[in-house]
């Protein structure tokens, strides 16, 4: 308790006096707690901005969908005037829609960055706290409490952060134009081969991620299977009375279940595989057109 009070008083004094001396930035750089607090404020602000941008983009997208429906109805009814009128509205609103969608994507990016910075700051703080907490269960109470609180924040932030989109960039369409020289065709073939190599490394990385998650999943499933199998028919229930059913912890379940994450990675892996095959086939075809040159 005494350490807690001293720590709080010290931090408060630093925060109050530092701006007067123009030293706050330097102090923040040396005090991990101040860094965490400042990054957390930035993170909350970025999160709120992203949410506002999402709502704005969603509103415009809803209006856009309604316009599309109206356009389809007008086309079906053969109402050319209405179709022309709607096309003009599309043209007028298109820049606004693009701007808001771009703003939302950017705000998500900023939110992710703020989150990563906060996670890094917490990690750094945890690392500094770790020697104090690892000594024993009876280590300094304040450090233990702070450690657990920071760790909870870390898990919350990690679960809140928008997922990095699990999708690939659109695949460029590479074709042979009428005036292409054999050298240009070969160059295009090499470009595609480079892309295949990139996809191969991405596939290997995805395989590794899937493997790690699958191992964790199997461990959890084995444990659940074992407990369920001997509880299912009440084999453990004997005529002794005093049956104490274990009350489940309202413990936090992961925001995205492990099964869903594995599914997302598998889908991406399949797409990568498909692109590799397609690009390899095309590169081979291009090389064939040049007479198999290197």
């Amino acid at each position: 308790m005494r350490r807690l009070l001293l720590h709080t008083a010290g931090t408060a004094a630093i925060c109050l006096l530092a701006p007067l001396a123009g030293l706050r930035a330097q102090v923040a750089a040396v005090s991990p707690q101040a860094v965490v607090e400042s990054r957390q404020a930035e993170y909350e602000e970025a999160k709120a901005r992203s949410e506002a941008a999402r709502l704005a983009a969603a509103r415009v997208r809803d209006e856009w969908s309604q316009l599309l429906e109206q356009h389809a109805a007008a086309s079906r009814a053969g109402d050319r005037d209405r179709v022309r009128e709607l096309l003009a509205v599309f043209q007028e609103r298109s820049p606004e829609k693009s701007r808001l969608e771009q703003a939302w994507r950017s705000s998500q990016e900023l939110w992710r960055e703020a989150g990563q910075e906060l996670v890094a700051a917490i990690d750094d703080y945890l690392e500094k706290l770790w020697p104090a907490t690892e000594q024993s269960v009876g280590a300094a109470e304040y450090e233990n409490a702070l450690y657990n609180e920071l760790f909870s924040t870390l898990r919350r932030v990690e679960s809140e952060l928008p997922e990095v989109p699990l999708e690939l960039e659109p695949m460029p369409e590479v074709t042979i134009r009428p005036g292409d020289t054999p050298g240009e065709i070969l160059y295009k073939a090499r470009l595609m081969e480079n892309r295949v190599r990139y996809y191969a490394s991405l596939a290997a990385e995805l395989d590794q991620k899937i493997e790690v998650l699958a191992q964790r999943q199997r461990r959890e499933q084995n444990r659940r299977d074992f407990m369920t199998s001997h509880e299912r028919f009440g084999d453990g229930v004997v005529p002794i009375g005093n049956e104490r059913r274990e009350l489940s912890d309202p413990a936090s379940a992961p925001a995205v279940p492990i099964e869903v994450r594995i599914g997302q990675y598998r889908e991406l892996r399949e797409e990568v595989e498909m692109r590799m095959l397609e690009l390899s086939r095309k590169a081979e075809e291009f090389r064939g057109r040049t007479g198999g040159g290197q």
Binding site: F233, V238, P239, S248, P250, A251
Partner: peptide, 26 residues
């Protein structure tokens, strides 16, 4: 050959969990 008797049961449960001083309380 002891096998537990047949029955039907219904259970309702409500719980609240929070963090207090670095520990979970429920």
């Amino acid at each position: 050959l002891y096998l537990p008797p047949g029955y039907r049961s219904y259970r309702l449960k409500a719980g609240y969990e929070t963090t207090l001083a670095g520990s979970r309380a429920s």
